[in-house]
Design a binder for these strands. Structure first.
Lengths: 205, 205
DNA sequence: CACAATTATGAGCAAATACTCAGATCCTGA
DNA sequence: TCAGGATCTGAGTATTTGCTCATAATTGTG
């Protein structure tokens, strides 16, 4: 076990239901606290308190504060991967607009429940190297996947599909996060409509 | 002087050149340190050290850590306002593509020098209320300004120009930041080209 | 030069906070 | 039922860090 892993791996595997419940309560509480106070001000004691659990219990399942955030981030990444897999199923051509709409909607859906937290994960988290690699890997996967779609779709008229793929992915990710978390959030229907319009017109040339 | 102001106002006005130099060195150092370590881990002592100045001197010109970041953010906002003003001068119609290119290029330019720091300012900074209002105000200004352009330009075919303005502004801001700061930054020429293409096709319907 | 104002210094304080550990409590299997 | 393992507790520790203040050095001025 490398020192880096030790920073993230759970200290103890829960063996009773009670323990697993505690773990979940801690994670839920952490999500709330981080979203409300930010990472630095989201203290471990505060998390424990919000979870209705002693600080000692918290450290029985998470070796340090980073690990808690890491777990939250991992979950989000898994969700992203699942979304990617789901979309791949409906791979058969179909209008490019529909594909883009799927992507946009999936982003909106997965970030509508707790936009504050997701922005935090995306931006404010001090990520250990191992996790950064995961993020990087998933992002690369998406870039490649998107480029494949663009390259293979008859409606698409783009020369630089590599740059386009990065642009599209980043636009969806960031803009949805931002506009959904803003002081006066945009109507998600309008957002979807305009965003899909923008991307569709873009790729169709 | 309200307590809120006291948190931001410089403690002392420099009266000798030496003092102004010190102030500048502190700000430059802070930009480096914040960009390299993030806000929380960018300690005041580290900033002072990087500036080659004692910690006491730092606190002679900045009442607290937030004030340093606030100054950096204010500068950035001022740059943004200046860019807006400059663009307004060339207001006369012209192809919408040129206008959009101006916006995109201005964003790229202003964030190419220190993308790390600028992302930080945008996202990670714990902002005192007063500053948040400034950010909010400038953003609103941009939204309104962009919508005006869209509404008044003959080439533009959009129904929901309000949402479109928010979408365009946010896209430019965030995507430029992100892609310029990414592990393998995009070529800024390509980025400009694709981004302008996307926005232009969008607004032209 | 003298002397006051300005600027610089940095050891150290107070507060915050991540994290530990020795012991109490609870659960389960035989 | 009950022993032993699993889980929980929370006061306390070690460390970090924003910030102060008494003192020293430097600069402008008459």
């Amino acid at each position: 076990m490398t020192p880096d892993e030790r920073r993230i791996q759970p200290r103890k595997q829960p063996r009773q239901v009670r323990a697993e419940l505690t773990r979940q309560r801690i994670l839920t509480a952490a999500a709330h606290v981080f979203a409300a106070h930010g990472y630095a001000a989201g203290t471990t004691n505060r998390i424990a308190e919000q979870a209705g659990v002693s600080i000692g219990s918290l450290y029985q399942y998470f070796p340090n504060k980073d690990a808690i955030l890491a777990e939250l981030l991992t979950r989000h990444l898994d969700d992203g991967a699942a979304a990617a897999a789901k979309i791949r199923i409906g791979d058969l051509p179909g209008p490019i607009e529909d594909i883009l709409r799927l992507l946009v909607r999936s982003a909106i859906d997965s970030h509508l429940d707790d936009p504050q937290l997701l922005r935090l994960l995306n931006e404010q988290a001090p990520r250990p190297a191992e996790l950064l690699q995961n993020v990087e890997r998933l992002k690369r996967y998406w870039y490649g996947y998107l480029q494949e779609i663009l390259d293979g779709h008859p409606e698409v008229r783009l020369t630089d599909t590599a740059t386009a793929a990065r642009l599209i992915f980043t636009t969806i990710e960031l803009v949805v996060h931002q506009l959904a978390a803003e002081h006066e959030p945009v109507d998600s229907g309008k957002l979807e409509h305009e965003m899909v319009a923008m991307l569709t017109r873009y790729v169709k040339g």
